[in-house]
Design a protein around this nucleic acid. Structure first.
Lengths: 168, 168
DNA sequence: CAATACTTGACTGAAATACTCGGTTATTGT
DNA sequence: ACAATAACCGAGTATTTCAGTCAAGTATTG
């Protein structure tokens, strides 16, 4: 599993979708505006989300995207794995000893860590985030218009690979 | 916390150090040979390890590096954090709402994840890895000479940032 | 049929990482 | 002393990868 800002954007977008769900599909342009993500980039992100049936799309005027399942049944891990495809298969085929001596052991370590992370992210649903959010900015959610292109913050963090962010 | 191949090398090297500890210090050249890491790169990696007092060094002939503490008291998290310094402090100062609406919430998610990962890596000691290893290749450890420059595998995986490696 | 909106894929720029190289300083053994 | 050894240091380079853009294409609806 890889963790990139692309994955973060994907989660953010899905969250946005969950929040603004209202029968009608949501157009990407709105998400782009609200979340400060470029439309083109969003398109690129939504393609794999659709392929993995996390969202469904409706074309033509009045179209847009919808969550394909209930927010409680969509897990962050799925979203990230959909977007940050792992075309990886690290050397050292299978369970054999891939390297001298030490390396393969650490390898096992990373593997375990990976499983941990995956387990964690597969345990958090969109609904969890939405609920958590409601608690946090119940006030703010009312005070700012939901749709308008007010803020338009360019980027949440600075670009580059999302570190398993000790920073904050 | 960042996870790079540099960090992986650091852990591997420390593990090597733990395994070949025998009173006398170990020279980097040996580790380089055994683990297939370039000497120069190892030097670069050991500098911060030394700064953080995870290893101690002895200069001159007969010199080399030693673990500064017992393997049971050195944790992987320390090693990685020593090497992959985080000069990070992500935007969105403090606990404020750093962004529009959605982003800061996911932010909290990443934060939690980060804490998880860190907790995990700070719970694994070098000794844990060493022991685990003994179990795994008790046979192999005898069958191949410990020192000689036999294999010389260039790289464990391919370069690039270490993904939280689903691959294997 | 015309506007809307998704779809696709190639392309680019910038950043970070991975790694090298040359030289210096401290010790030790002869 | 001298020479060999090994840690130490800092600058420098190259590759990779990611983030983001652009342009053209296709399906739907009104």
């Amino acid at each position: 599993m890889r963790l990139t800002t692309k994955g973060r954007y994907a989660v953010t977008a899905m969250l946005d979708l969950a929040i603004h769900a209202s029968g009608k599909p949501t157009v990407l342009a709105d998400i782009a505006r609200r979340q400060g993500i470029s439309l083109s980039y969003l398109e690129q992100i939504f393609a794999p989300l659709r392929k993995r049936a996390l969202v469904s799309s409706v074309r033509g005027p009045g179209g847009g995207y919808r969550l394909a399942r209930a927010p409680s049944a969509i897990f962050i891990g799925e979203v990230i794995e959909a977007v940050d495809e792992q075309l990886e298969a690290t050397r050292c085929g299978g369970g054999r000893d891939c390297q001298a001596r030490g390396a393969c052991l650490t390898h096992q370590l990373w593997q375990d860590l990976s499983d941990h992370v995956r387990g964690y992210l597969h345990g958090v649903s969109l609904l969890d985030l939405v609920e958590h959010q409601d608690l946090r900015d119940r006030v703010q959610a009312r005070s700012t218009p939901v749709v308008s292109g007010g803020t338009r913050v360019p980027l949440p963090g600075r670009p580059g690979l999302m570190r398993i962010a000790a920073g904050a």
